[in-house]
Design a binder for these strands. Sequence first.
DNA 1: TGCGTGTTTGCACCATGATGCAACTGTATG
DNA 2: CATACAGTTGCATCATGGTGCAAACACGCA
Lengths: 137, 137
Amino acid sequence: MVQTRKRPPATPRAAAACCRPVDDLLDPGLFRALGDPTRVRLFGCLVKCARPCSVGEIADCCDVDLSVVSRHLKTLGGAGLVEATRAGRTVRYAASHAEIADRMRRLAAAIEECGPPSPPRTATRVADRTRRRRRAG
Amino acid sequence: MVQTRKRPPATPRAAAACCRPVDDLLDPGLFRALGDPTRVRLFGCLVKCARPCSVGEIADCCDVDLSVVSRHLKTLGGAGLVEATRAGRTVRYAASHAEIADRMRRLAAAIEECGPPSPPRTATRVADRTRRRRRAG
DNA sequence: TGCGTGTTTGCACCATGATGCAACTGTATG
DNA sequence: CATACAGTTGCATCATGGTGCAAACACGCA
């Protein structure tokens, strides 16, 4: 693996001026969309349901007005968390599983890249290697 | 790998009643903390700075009142995003890199687990195997 | 074209929370 | 003990946004 790690900025002020991958991933818009209890519940239901659901169906999973659900779904869509498709007069929303998972994983990587040189990871790798060697032997 | 995948609930209403790993990871409190521009900026600076910083230092990275920064840092701390340590009269906050990265990764995994059976992943694995075979041969 | 259904939008209300200022607490230092 | 400094808290203000109701809109169907 090549050396991609940079020396961290000396102060938070310097950090504010310096650009890292984590800056793009830390989008307030995305987190804001998931910051409301009702909205995150809707998103969770769509994630677990794992298929495109109509607004009416989705509204059944919590006791707020249908119009509220409609607005929340639009917000989730704007944040890229769900995707909408029309079929006649019904609109179906589906969770964007792969996209969001990828986004979260990239955020995790970006945060980790800024942090301390992750000794636990090396430890895990050593353990893996040991296990592999044992299995082989 | 053993079969851990469950059949998804038929409707969002059923999804609301059914419990999956993703439910615990989708904590509105965490996302709410990252949903404010000022706060996420502070968090980003701490992530990039990668060391414990005093409140005064941190306040230098954005043009809001020191008291506001103090409150935001407390919020971030409450969400588990940063950790505070006192030394005399100065309080230092540091980003919890490993914890947050782990949390994001587990969320990614939980979301992916609910989603479609991820054909791209299988494809990748096949590709990896092919590549490995080629490299070996 | 009129009707019923699924969804969105306009509007008003209200709760939450982000912000700045000032006062306060707590801790070193003289 | 007085002073200065780091940070927190109380308070008032204001903007944002979550909510419900009703009306409007869009589409399929008879």
